[in-house]
């Protein structure tokens, strides 16, 4: 049942809205290598959009283009129906786009709580002098934001390690803290680069549940990169398949699974 702008209700009752982000003919080169060749796809409001493909396909590069970390040689990124002017990564973040990284990028010298609090930085406005004086504006802001952060900490069930330095945490927990930092920003679009890589089965199940809950409870739009096909089939509404920088498939998990080119290039190969 599709609306004129293509919005629809999923089988499990979530509302998928219009297009929030559209990649138009993106080409990204590193020297002679085409990391991304002329790829277009869109992301709809409220959906979980997966990007899959073998190693080196250009998936992380695509997220980095969305984040403004890489500037494509050709193509445009459209956000909320307008072409996005070239902007710095921190400006992109301030538009409500948060992310996690394939290789965990936490602030190792800080506690879990402080790491998650950094997710709120884009929302914190008090100036240098107010912060130096602390009492009043800065303290109020700190407490208000701490409350939001504590909700995220509860949500991801990491209360027990709140005050622990992140440096010594096991890998799976670090991934979770990184997700907490991204969620603390209350993003409209959440980018997850292999959130389940390197996890054991239980950790993967937890992470899957968190991702579904975030999408369901907060209506957050999610674009995620994942290797595990089972996970992708379970989680995502639509899938983009990349191989050697090219798009070879785009559609629902079922459509993608039935696509011969995808089967040849990706599903047939053991990873």
């Amino acid at each position: 049942m599709k609306d004129t702008d293509g919005s629809y209700i999923t089988e499990d009752g979530r509302k998928i809205g219009g297009v929030v982000m559209e990649m138009k003919n993106i080409t990204l080169k590193f020297g002679g290598v085409n990391a991304i060749s002329d790829i277009s796809f869109d992301i709809r409001e409220g959906e979980i959009r997966a990007i899959i493909g073998p190693n080196g396909a250009g998936k992380s590069s695509m997220l980095n283009v969305i984040s403004g970390f890489y500037i494509p040689q050709e193509g445009e990124v459209w956000f909320h129906g307008k072409p996005r002017p070239q902007m710095k990564p921190y400006e992109v973040a301030r538009q409500g786009i948060a992310r996690t990284f394939q290789n965990i990028a936490l602030f190792e010298g800080m506690s879990v709580l402080d790491n998650v609090m950094t997710g709120r930085l884009t929302h914190m406005k008090s100036g240098l002098f107010a912060q130096a004086i602390w009492k009043g504006r800065a303290e109020k802001e700190e407490i208000a934001n701490r409350e939001i952060v504590e909700k995220v900490i509860d949500f991801l069930e990491i209360q027990a390690i709140r005050k622990t330095p992140v440096a010594g945490l096991p890998y799976g927990l670090k991934k979770r803290v990184e997700l907490a930092r991204a969620l603390a920003a209350e993003p409209r679009l959440l980018l997850l680069d292999e959130p389940m890589a390197g996890m054991n089965v239980e950790e993967k199940e937890d992470m899957c549940r968190f991702i579904l809950d975030v999408n369901d409870e907060f209506g957050t739009t999610i674009a995620l990169i994942e290797h595990d096909m089972g996970v992708v089939m379970d989680l995502s509404d639509r899938v983009v398949v990349m191989d050697y920088g090219k798009k070879i498939g785009d559609g629902t998990p079922e459509e993608v699974r039935a696509n011969q080119e995808v089967i040849d290039a990706y599903l047939g190969v053991q990873h």
């Binding site: 990564p89 921190y90 936490l106 602030f107 950094t118």
Partner: peptide, 19 residues
């Protein structure tokens, strides 16, 4: 926290919104 984030991992700091 802005300073410490910059110290610990500057590219991640920028990607979470730190100028």
């Amino acid at each position: 926290r802005t300073w410490k984030a910059t110290r610990d991992m500057d590219f991640a700091a920028e990607l979470i919104g730190i100028n």
